[in-house]
């Protein structure tokens, strides 16, 4: 009998506690920035597409829900011709983000992706590409990679010596 009353009393006390339940969807949950939600493709600080279509995200994906095709612009900069994620298969494990050498693919704190039609869960590049750097600021892959692209010649990247004069024999 005592135990019963004690339980009721304790339950009653919760009336005065801070509320954990929020009025979703009127009120939005505050998610940590590392939350693994919807996947986006970001851009580098100069506004160029970060994705270089290296296929590592697709290879890392345990459910094989990423498909893409690489292509190049006339200056040699590589980018995906198409980039497709089938979110009806995605398990939001974040392996793709771990595998990405350019910080292009990122999982963001957004989970509101419900659809009535499963076909609408197939996201193409136009659905994925955002106009910003996402979680990782300031990184530009082509600034550290040795490949020459438009606007960055050989030897102009970070930690790169100017091109070798192959006609010189001086050490």
């Amino acid at each position: 009998m005592f135990s019963l009353l004690r339980s009721m009393w304790l339950t009653f006390l919760h009336v005065f506690h801070k509320r954990e339940t929020i009025q979703y969807p009127e009120q939005k949950a505050i998610l940590p920035t590392r939350w693994r939600g919807r996947i986006v493709l970001s851009r580098d600080p100069d506004g160029g597409e970060r994705c270089v279509a290296c296929n590592l995200c697709a290879a890392a994906c345990p459910v094989d829900c990423i498909a893409l095709q690489a292509t190049e612009d006339p200056t040699g900069r590589r980018y995906p011709e198409f980039f497709r994620i089938n979110f009806s298969r995605c398990i939001f494990c974040g392996f793709c983000e771990d595998a990405c050498p350019t910080y292009a693919i990122q999982l963001i704190p957004d989970f509101e992706m419900g659809e009535y039609n499963r076909q609408n869960l197939v996201y193409e590049k136009k659905d994925l590409l955002i106009n910003g750097q996402g979680k990782y600021h300031g990184y530009n892959y082509y600034k550290v990679a040795g490949l020459a692209i438009g606007g960055k010649g050989k030897g102009e990247a970070e930690n790169e010596a100017p091109p070798v004069d192959i006609r010189s024999l001086i050490p």
Binding site: A58, A59, C61, D64, A67, L68, Q119, L121, V122
Partner: peptide, 16 residues
């Protein structure tokens, strides 16, 4: 065995 994109490469045509 590392072949990727099996559940996405044809998803634009039909998600099934």
């Amino acid at each position: 065995h590392r072949f990727s994109g099996r559940t996405a490469m044809l998803a634009n045509i039909n998600v099934n």
